[in-house]
Design a protein around this nucleic acid. Sequence first.
DNA 1: GGTATGATTGACT
DNA 2: GTCAATCATACCA
Length: 191
Amino acid sequence: MSAGASWFARGCLAVAHDLIGCELLVDGVGGTVVECEAYARDEPASHAFPGPTQRNASMFGPAGRLYVYRSYGIHWMLNIVCGEQEGAGEAVLIRALQPTTGLELMRARRGRDAELELCRGPGRLGQALAIGPGLDGEPVGAGRVAFDPGRPSGPVEQSTRIGITRARELPWRFSLAGSPYVSPTRRSRSA
DNA sequence: GGTATGATTGACT
DNA sequence: GTCAATCATACCA
């Protein structure tokens, strides 16, 4: 069943890697994680890099909780706090899910997207799962957020993170190789 | 107090 | 391929 907070009380890289293939449900809606990215404390791409602020407060809280924030004024991003000890300032960004539960609700929330596009990309995922400020700090594996550890159905691919401008070289993005539910790699910001 | 920026997406040329 | 939408936070004056 649900794993305790201890599952997330590890380094963000290990958590991000193991997260592929796990099942995540918010209010009974969700699916299998197929893509995520790790964010540590001491790298400039991370929200934790500048130190604790009001926005990223959850990132410095106990592991196994959600860190939710708004990006570009429009999208809600879903993260899970991790780290070997509380206050580590590490988190994993959930970038894409393979929808398994609550398909109808997701479709209703997002319009009439194909199943493939319901949760492909962090912004879409946030919309499909109705992520909002009320979920910030919510414990994972209890209450509104269900979590089941699982194993990936295929090889896990490691690559560079997407959509960031700093520390782009760190290969901290994990995805299920060959999965059509993984967000397409945008190359507009390539150097 | 004012301005620049972002872990994105969707629409348009 | 290029650009607008949209707003809280960060940083400078």
